[in-house]
């Protein structure tokens, strides 16, 4: 077909911006629009990825949160390589053994940083100001990470995993959980280690980080001799962070 000046051409439609779309009255009832609106309102981009922080965020202790996540990235990346190559690979390949070493040491760094982060936050009373959920998701992340590491040790297929499984069975069985969680079943432990628990850890860490962004970094306690309510105006609203 030859295109001539007379050929009718569909006029280009303007690409709607999210804001424009959400503002259209006829779209207001859309679930998608409502979800987007709620998400953007709860966590505007500036808050999700801030470029400024309160001046009190100045201590080495803050580094350990980001180090934990960085180590988790290495844990997942090396775990993916081990998963792609299969559970027997690292026992017979020097490259595999090196990837396993990376996986082991990334786990050690992950826990080292996570525990310092946890106790740092404890001594900052980081739950203050409507940050309870942040604290609780952090503690649960730690707990599930312990389970993820534990199943990793059980999945090694070497003497260590034999010993750990035959010892750990007594503790697990004593709670009745051994009925479904059989630590001497390599296949079951491997599946927990490479699917269920990593998914839980990633989901929990994701929620935890979103909560940090949503509530911000907890401010210091008021200095001695100065009351927290020196400026009581606003206490109880969203900005001040008084528990609802």
């Amino acid at each position: 077909m030859t295109v001539t000046d007379e050929t009718p051409v569909e006029p280009m439609r303007p690409v709607p911006t999210p804001t424009a779309s959400a503002d259209r009255p006829e779209d207001a009832a859309q679930w998608t629009a409502k979800l987007r609106h709620t998400a953007v309102e709860a966590l505007p981009p500036q808050q999700l990825m801030p470029d400024r922080q309160p001046a009190y965020v100045a201590s080495w202790i803050y580094v350990f949160g980001v180090v934990t996540i960085a180590a988790l990235v290495v844990v997942i990346a090396t775990g993916l390589v081990l998963a792609i190559m299969g559970p027997n690979w690292w026992h017979s390949s020097t490259t595999g053994l090196f990837v396993n070493s990376l996986h082991l040491w990334s786990v050690e760094v992950f826990f080292f940083a996570m525990i310092i982060h946890l106790w740092g936050k404890f001594f900052m009373a980081a739950w203050r100001g409507r940050r309870r959920t942040t604290w609780i998701t952090g503690v649960i992340s730690f707990l599930v990470s312990v389970g993820a590491a534990f199943t990793g040790y059980l999945s090694q297929q070497n003497f260590d995993s034999q010993w750990i499984s035959t010892q750990a069975k007594d503790g697990i069985n004593s709670t009745g959980a051994g009925a479904i969680f059989n630590v001497t079943n390599f296949g079951q432990m491997l599946m927990w280690h490479i699917t269920l628990l990593p998914l839980c850890v990633l989901a929990l860490v994701g929620v935890h980080v979103l909560m940090v962004r949503l509530r911000g970094v907890v401010p210091p306690f008021a200095p001695e001799g100065r009351a927290d309510d020196a400026e009581p105006v606003g206490i109880g609203n969203e900005q001040t962070g008084v528990e609802a």
């Binding site: 922080q53 001046a55 100001g129 109880g236 962070g241 008084v242 609802a244």
Partner: peptide, 24 residues
């Protein structure tokens, strides 16, 4: 008190930060 009528508690609540912000 806060909006729920509870007294401010230093181990539970925080006051609004009105100090400086630094690039991050």
């Amino acid at each position: 008190v806060d909006n729920a009528g509870r007294p401010f508690k230093a181990d539970r609540d925080v006051a609004e930060w009105k100090g400086a912000y630094t690039p991050y």
